[in-house]
Design a protein around this nucleic acid. Structure first.
Lengths: 140, 140
DNA sequence: CAGTATCCGGGAGGATACTG
DNA sequence: CAGTATCCTCCCGGATACTG
């Protein structure tokens, strides 16, 4: 029930000649696999960091820049746009002058952050182990 | 405690002139941020899929090829090598002829899979919502 | 069977300059 | 302040061919 892939499924026949991935017993064209679709965002260099930056509360564009010093302006805008597009965050413009823009997690964004957190914790916990394994492997 | 980033920390001063990310109150050079280090793997196109493929039990190279039809030989090898290097899986060669090689999740690999599963579930659940949000956004 | 080796295109993302 | 607009580079990953 929890594994992404099931063996010995006849589902490969569902798409004629097309490559297929099987998740929870259902077949998807690997082109639009839902899990892949979401995990692509997770993999993006800035997406998860941005979600976590907004987890404490809404922030403005410039505040995000200061919080994440090594993101380029281009990537900050693009990441925020992508997250907005997929419904993770909302963008609110205040017509002050100069204008200020507030970014805020949606309900779904907060929901996502909750499944993200364990992964972050896991990463921090196991990072030393991974580093060690890597050095051991590279020693050969 | 659970958020990746803390505000109003003076930690930016810890690294002299270097860009810094702050996690759970500790500062890391953004070059070797532990969370980024792990999440990079999550983001790789095949890494998570491979972990899940092996979640049910060990598999051989050719079995993995059949299970994930649209991976190239090159990427299959490389993904397995990377996962082995970081300690997620082990690689065992059986000197039959022709040789067969078995890949198996380590304890850490299984541990990782457990924090991965909720993310996979979440993806499958929210995928329709995301698709809808995306179409709404693109309509403008 | 389980890999290497090589070539190659596309896209992610950085740097820089400009704007309402 | 909060963006666009370009340009450019690196490297991920696919395709193909060869090997112990």
């Amino acid at each position: 029930m929890n594994q992404m892939i099931k063996r010995k499924s006849g589902a490969q026949q569902l798409f004629d000649g097309e490559k297929v991935i099987v998740i929870n017993g259902r077949a998807f064209s690997s082109a639009d696999c839902p899990v892949r679709d979401v995990l692509t965002n997770v993999g993006g260099k800035w997406n998860t960091l941005m979600v976590q930056a907004l987890a404490d509360g809404p922030m403005r564009f410039s505040a995000l820049r200061r919080l994440i010093p090594d993101i380029s302006q281009r990537m900050l805008t693009q990441t925020l746009r992508d997250l907005e597009r997929d419904g993770y965050i909302t963008r609110t413009v205040f017509p002050t002058k100069p204008p200020s823009v507030e970014y805020r997690l949606t309900e779904m964004g907060r929901s996502f952050n909750q499944v993200l957190e364990p992964l972050v914790e896991w990463s921090a916990t196991h990072h030393p182990t991974i580093r060690a394994a890597r050095e051991r492997f590279d020693a050969n």
